[in-house]
Simulated scan of single mutants.
Amino acid sequence: MEISTLIQPVSIGIEVILVILGLAIAVRKKRCYGWYIALTFGIYVVYDSAHLIGVQVSQNVLSGIFFIATLSILIGIWKIYSEPDSTVTGCNRGKEGQ
């Protein structure tokens, strides 16, 4: 059995988790960039699932959906980047004044 056969379902599972987290960010945290994260990884789930079960999709359709996914994550990341610094926590927590 090829490693890609084993990795594909795991990858799809991680993508589903990312969709759920994106939706939680949008709904529970009320951050609009969560919708863009969910859309991007939702597209990846559909594409990877179709590939896993052998659905044939034209190159034009693939190019279009990947463009939408790329644009979606670009908007989401831009919105994260554009948030005021006072709302950002995480990696810099506890390093104030450095």
Rank of each mutant, 00 (worst) to 15 (best):
E2N: 15
Q8V: 13
S11W: 04
G13Y: 01
E15H: 02
E15P: 00
I17W: 00
I20P: 00
V27H: 03
R28G: 06
C32N: 11
G34K: 02
W35I: 04
W35C: 01
Y36V: 00
Y36T: 03
G42Q: 01
I43C: 06
I43Y: 04
V45C: 12
V45Q: 09
V46F: 06
Y47W: 11
Y47H: 11
H51V: 07
V55M: 10
V57C: 13
V57T: 13
S58Q: 13
Q59H: 09
V61K: 09
I65M: 15
F66S: 05
F67L: 15
F67Y: 10
I68G: 07
I68Y: 04
I68R: 06
A69R: 05
A69W: 01
T70Q: 09
T70E: 06
T70D: 07
L71Q: 05
L71K: 04
S72D: 11
I73E: 09
L74V: 15
I77P: 01
W78D: 09
W78A: 15
K79D: 10
K79Y: 05
E83Q: 13
S86V: 14
T87F: 04
T87R: 09
V88C: 00
T89H: 14
G90V: 03
G90A: 06
R93G: 00
G94R: 06
G94W: 05
K95L: 14
K95T: 07
E96K: 10
E96S: 10
E96C: 04
Q98Y: 12
